[in-house]
Design a binder for these strands. Structure first.
Length: 210
DNA sequence: GACCAGGCACATC
DNA sequence: GATGTGCATGGT
């Protein structure tokens, strides 16, 4: 059986990304960099409570206010700057309109996102997949560990190589890429902390396919 | 009290 | 091009 099928049967749908709006996805994608999601939820909740989870409102807020509100998710000064960097591009080039920005083709949009200081490959792809609804595969630390453990890549494999492994062997379906990434994260959180392949892992010793 | 968490930019070699 | 470091909080 394919890996995805096993994960899906075991865990069920993960309903990512947990957010009410596309803008909330963007903010969450930046705030969750190297950070536990539970802490991001506190930050998002504070922003929401202060009605700052809208592009115009967040843009007009001063950095100290934002930093204070997102404090629980760590790196708050850097993340505040990164949110501001994104907002400047959004307003200068796209009138503050996310939908306008997302009307770019996937290649142009990815490039545009990567030009924002503070948005790297994973954050850009998370935004592409979960906010702009494009079928790109998101690679993160869990994905890397997953691929290493199943000996599908070498230690020195880069982001694009890992991404290609999925994108070249799977149908480009939004729903599939959405769930697959979320399931890999779920699997990593619950089973794959340690190095050896564990016996209770729902994948067992299966190293097949993608 | 370590160690880690849904990264990224930057310095240095 | 590879490798190391700062950024920071909260949970285990």
């Amino acid at each position: 059986m394919q890996v995805f099928e096993k994960l899906y049967r075991y865990f069920g749908p993960q309903y990512w990304w947990p957010a009410d709006t596309a803008f909330e996805v963007v903010v969450g994608a930046i705030l969750t960099q190297n950070t536990a999601w539970a802490n991001v939820e506190k930050a998002i909740s504070s922003l929401k409570k202060n009605k700052l989870l809208k592009p115009a409102r967040l843009r007009s807020s001063d950095v100290r206010t934002i930093a204070r509100l997102i404090r629980p998710c760590g790196y708050y000064n850097i993340k505040t700057a990164r949110l501001k960097n994104f907002l400047e591009v959004l307003f200068k080039d796209f009138k503050g309109n996310l939908r306008l920005m997302f009307s770019l083709n996937v290649t142009a949009l990815r490039q545009r996102l990567l030009e924002v200081k503070g948005i790297g490959p994973e954050t850009a792809d998370s935004i592409l997949l979960y906010a702009a609804k494009r079928p790109v595969f998101v690679v993160d630390a869990y994905t890397r560990r997953f691929l290493l453990r199943h000996k599908l890549i070498s230690q020195k494999a880069g982001y694009r190589q890992m991404q290609s492994l999925f994108e070249e062997n799977l149908p480009h379906r939004l729903r599939l890429f959405n769930e697959y990434h979320a399931l890999i994260v779920r699997l990593g959180k619950e089973f794959c902390r340690k190095e050896p392949i564990c016996d209770i892992c729902p994948l067992g010793k299966d190293r097949g396919g993608e």
